[in-house]
Design a protein around this nucleic acid. Structure first.
Length: 466
RNA sequence: GGAGCUAUCGCCAAGUUGGUAAGGCAGCAGAUUGCAAAUCUGCCAUUCACCAGUUCGAGUCUGGUUAGCUCCUCCA
């Protein structure tokens, strides 16, 4: 397998620390609000990575954290009057449910910052002991970036570019402008604090990831984990700082490979809360099935920016529909084994830094080819069994195509409407048998008006929701 | 101001180490159909933002230009 490393900025052959095993850590959300499409993209990217690694025979251990201590959460506590625990557990639950709708497999480890305070405290203490961290008069603890000679090597940033320094409002007691907080001392009237040996307070943003990785993964003398992932916006300062803390505290590098996914954009601009153009996942899921959304969001290579548009989403859905139409033609059937060449073409495509476009093209070709074969020999049982196995493999590797094909085309149709559709189709069949085509066409128009497409096949009349 | 990414058919989007442009949507023609839909077949970029260079040969390498985006502040 080849993966693109954002630190070296090139595709590298993937060689895990331990043969056949992969440790993967992905930065999860700060749980103070609903997830937007950008969170979905990040989750989808690393879900795809994890599935691909597994399909290539690796045993994957994936961790994804929840940041549940943070300024914004505390702000929400103040504005809502709810407890921190109430807020974070609510959004964690929402997040997991929405990700499940997208077919994202749960991480093996889902640590929360609040449950990792022991590891956080240990690491900060280690840095204090080594005099790499220092406490200022308020009790805040900072990381001294000048003590780390490798600081800046993750994001490839030259230290001391003055312009950027001027832009950051910095504490006068900080030794270097780029020093960042490891621990924030408790201020009066603040209840969301934790006791430690150094002082009552709460962790800074960056330390939790380093501490949790150290807590859950072993690594070797050079690296703690194989792959560290996250959104491209986390490269600096978050991942730079994580790497620095871990390097200084443990004496070895945090991750062997760093992977970053591109942004979801709206009209060519990054979707973000500060720009006010966020598209919440919950709203998208009201209009579109999670699987359709997954297919669409995964259809562009993970490193590229993704420009979201409903028009593109509809185009994308048509492509997925074709797979399900084929599945209808072979349904129901028992799966045999997937076609060897087909399976290999998908594995090869994904092994090339998750080249999803190549994989989707291979699927389209398989669909067209199988349809062609079924046109000439509709009862080829062996072909049907193999095709179902192909589709099951698609679902395993890429996370779509797993539904009952008839159900897929009926999502969003309630019982009353379904009964009505079935009655109309029955009437139309009778009209057709009587060669009353005017009546038959009138019924078809009625169905079209309901958003239902019908198709007459040798096996009877089938219908789909548009 | 500093750092970086991107620019391929009407739309979306691939393109390993340079060797003569995947796939999908839309469109056109045909097979099929009572007519449709679905499905299949054929057609659909001598050309890859622009200019110059290296080369027998460049979308792919080098230099420059233009445009868009991102990071440098919380952010997936």
């Amino acid at each position: 397998m080849y993966i693109y490393d954002s630190v070296q900025k090139k595709k590298l052959p993937f060689e895990p620390i331990e043969e056949n095993r992969v440790s993967l850590y992905v930065c999860g959300p700060t749980v103070y609000d609903d997830a937007h499409l950008g969170h979905a993209r990040a989750s989808l990217t690393f879900d795809l990575l994890s599935r691909t690694l597994k399909a290539h025979g690796y045993e994957v251990t994936m961790a994804k954290n929840f940041t549940d201590i943070d300024d914004k959460i505390i702000k929400k506590v103040k504005t809502t009057g709810k407890s921190m625990e109430e807020i974070t557990s609510y959004y964690i639950e929402r997040y997991l449910a929405e990700m499940e709708a997208l077919g994202i497999q749960r991480a093996d480890i889902e640590p929360k910052a609040t449950e990792s305070l022991d590891a956080i405290e240990t690491m900060i203490q280690e840095l204090l002991d080594k005099e790499i961290a220092y406490m200022i008069s308020t009790g805040d603890i900072y990381f001294d970036t000048s003590k780390d000679t490798k600081y800046g090597t993750i994001s490839n940033r030259i230290a001391n570019d003055e312009e950027s320094i001027n832009r950051v409002e910095h504490n006068i007691e900080k030794r270097n402008p780029k020093d960042f907080a490891l621990w924030k001392a408790c201020k009066k009237e603040d209840n969301n604090c934790f006791d430690t040996a150094f002082c009552r307070g709460r962790p800074g943003w960056h330390i939790e990831c380093s501490a949790m990785i150290e807590k859950y993964f072993q690594g070797n003398a050079d690296y703690t984990i194989d792959i560290h992932g996250g959104g491209a916006d986390l490269l600096f300062p978050h991942h730079e700082n994580e790497a620095a803390q871990s390097r200084c505290a443990t004496g070895h590098e945090l991750a062997k490979y760093w992977m970053h996914n591109g942004f979801v954009q709206i009209d060519g601009e990054k979707m973000s809360k500060s720009l006010g153009n966020s598209f919440f996942l919950k709203d998208a899921l009201k209009h579109y099935d999670g699987e359709v959304l997954r297919y669409y969001l995964n259809s562009v290579h993970y490193r590229n920016n993704f420009n979201f548009s409903e028009e593109d989403l509809r185009q994308s859905k048509k492509r997925l529909d074709k797979l399900y139409r084929l599945k209808k033609r072979i349904w129901p059937q028992k799966a045999s084994l997937p076609n060897r060449l087909f399976k290999q073409s998908l594995l090869d495509a994904m092994a090339d830094d998750l080249n999803i476009s190549k994989a989707l093209a291979a699927i389209d070709e398989m669909v067209a080819h199988t349809n062609e074969l079924l046109d000439t020999n509709p009862k080829d049982k062996g072909l049907k069994k193999e095709t179902l196995a192909n589709i099951l493999f698609i679902e395993e590797l890429l996370g779509f195509g797993g539904k009952d094909p008839f159900f897929y085309f009926q999502i969003g149709i309630d019982h009353t409407l379904k009964t009505k559709i079935e009655i109309l189709i029955k009437e139309r069949i009778e009209a057709k048998e009587n060669k009353d085509f005017a009546r038959s066409d009138a019924i078809r128009n009625e169905l079209t008006a309901l958003g239902i497409h019908i198709m007459d096949t040798p096996d009877g009349t089938l219908w789909e929701k548009v």
